[in-house]
Design a protein around this nucleic acid. Structure first.
Length: 462
RNA sequence: UCCCCUGUAGCUCAGCUGGUAGAGCAGGUGGCUGUUAACCACCGGGUCGGCGGUUCGAGUCCGUCCGGGGGAGCCA
């Protein structure tokens, strides 16, 4: 059994030479003596129409078992279709139902389902048009990400999943332990992590950035593309407990260079997926987010607006819009502010730089004003922040001061400080939430619908 | 974690101010030589999320728990 994919068959010319195809039945339409099966194998959005003459030998008996959801093998000849809606169709010579899908219990019907319902059957939803297209676009974006960095000579590095450092501060880590939870070993009344598997407290990584910095300061340009985990109790359409993150890190690079790469990166992968998944993208443009294709094409061609945080606050202050929270220097930009900047003022991606140091991470390079840091966020319409990045603090003493200010223990960061003690160099990087990118590109409203099996607070089914 | 909305047939939903449950689609059967949201006819299908309360009477009102969604915060 080694039949061609339906995508291949759909592009073939009509021929009297029989072909064998396999797939799952999407719909079945019956008339007297004639049956139309729509079959799909996930290799393309389009399905193949199979025409069955119910008066032919053997076909009438097998056809009733080929209901919606059943897997079938059809041998037939490809012919030009007299009907509208498809160029070619398969005239069945033989039909074999491989696996039945009892119609009274098969959850997927030949009609549209709500995403809420499909979330409850995450193991079957990839068989729908939307999720098929989604997985193919997701794959296209992942391939485009690797292509972008590989073409530019970046080295893909694999940073640890289990870690004992925490780039963002404490409290959001999933703890990893082999200690018996029902009787924890104590030392002076506190949990004795010395007796844990790693001899100290460990968790799942929230970011590979710190380790990526170590590799960039040896290999120059590197990137990570792997899973990250956050145990935050946030229940929104933009957060997952387990998600994939892309984090380039570049030595001998400043904030301006960082922004250049970020902008080129977004444009490259958008162009990549528009070129390679046109039919899948049409589905999203038609059913999920009308206008998304035009928007993405425009983003590819238009320079991203670059403003400082101070300028953003200024623009927001002048806005006619009434905000729930007024924009004032020192406070982080609210969702409503990000939306206003990207959707109303600039109508496209905006890069905001030079945030107050108090609202950004300790590793960002301090500006000469002593108040702001060399951080940048790429904001996009509808989603807000899609990329967060910065030039890193390369001065050991300034970094040590920032660690102390942040209330962190310097001893936990000794290896990180070493990177500045020995052959320090300016370096910069950014992080992109992969699922947020998929959301941005497809227009899908909920992040739980852009990953096959979502993990979020209170929910880790399948 | 906070605020708001929501839970009725397999799915999507209707059910006004309390009087004992309905539509469309899906499914089954039959009809129709080319359908593509197929069409036409008939049929089956519900502890109205759980528990408790008010009431002669609760899908409807109240309390509580559970599930789902949207927004906020935090962030990617």
């Amino acid at each position: 059994m080694n039949s061609p994919r339906l995508k291949t068959v759909l592009s073939m010319q009509p021929s009297p030479e029989p072909v064998t195809v396999c797939g799952w039945v999407r719909t079945r339409r019956e008339s007297k003596g004639l049956c139309f099966l729509e079959i799909n194998d996930g290799s393309a959005v389009e399905s193949l129409q199979v025409v069955i003459d119910l008066r032919a030998d053997g076909l009438a008996e097998e056809t009733p078992r080929a209901g919606t959801g059943a897997s079938v093998e059809v041998r037939g000849t490809l012919a030009a279709s007299p009907g509208t809606g498809q160029a070619v169709e398969l005239q069945a010579l033989s039909l074999r139902v491989i696996g039945e899908a009892p119609p009274e219990s098969y959850p997927l019907q030949k009609k549209r389902h709500s995403f809420e319902f499909l979330r409850g059957i995450a193991h079957l939803r990839p068989r729908t048009n939307t999720f098929g297209a989604l997985m193919r676009v997701r794959n296209g974006l992942a391939a485009g990400i690797h292509a972008f960095f590989q073409e530019r000579g970046f080295v893909w590095v694999h940073t640890p999943i289990i870690t004992t450092s925490d780039a963002e501060g404490a409290g959001e880590l999933f703890q990893v332990t082999t200690l018996p939870l029902e009787r924890l070993p104590l030392a002076d009344g506190r949990i004795d992590y010395a007796r844990d598997f790693f001899g100290k407290r460990a968790g799942l990584t929230v970011s590979g950035q710190l380790e990526a910095e170590a590799l960039a300061l040896a290999l120059r340009d590197v990137y990570t593309f792997g899973p990250a985990f956050r145990a935050e109790n946030s229940n929104t359409s933009r957060h997952l407990a387990e998600f994939w993150m892309v984090e380039p890190e570049m030595a001998f690079c400043d904030l301006a260079g960082d922004m250049d790469v970020a902008e080129a990166f977004i444009k490259f992968i958008l162009r990549w997926v528009l070129d390679r998944c046109p039919l899948d993208m049409e589905l999203f443009d038609r059913w999920i987010e009308p206008g998304i294709l035009a928007t993405l094409r425009k983003v590819v061609e238009t320079p991203f607006v670059r403003i400082t945080y101070a300028e953003a606050i200024d623009a927001l202050g002048k806005a006619q819009a009434s905000f729930e929270y007024p924009a004032s220097w020192g406070a982080d930009l609210q969702s409503e502010h990000e939306k206003h900047l990207t959707e109303k003022v600039f109508q496209g991606p905006v890069i905001v730089t030079d945030y107050p140091k108090a609202i950004k991470a300790f590793y960002m390079k301090l500006n000469d004003d002593g108040k702001t840091v060399r951080g940048m966020d790429v904001l996009v319409p509808r989603l807000g922040e899609i990329i967060g990045g910065s030039e890193r603090e390369a001065d050991a003493e300034k970094l040590r001061a920032r660690i102390r200010e942040a209330g962190l223990d310097e001893r936990d960061y000794s290896w990180y400080l070493d990177l500045r003690r020995y052959g320090s160099a300016p370096h910069a990087g950014f992080g992109l939430g992969f699922e947020r990118l998929v959301q941005y590109v497809t227009g899908m409203a909920n992040i739980r619908d852009v990953i096959p099996f979502p993990r979020a607070v209170g929910s880790a089914e399948f």
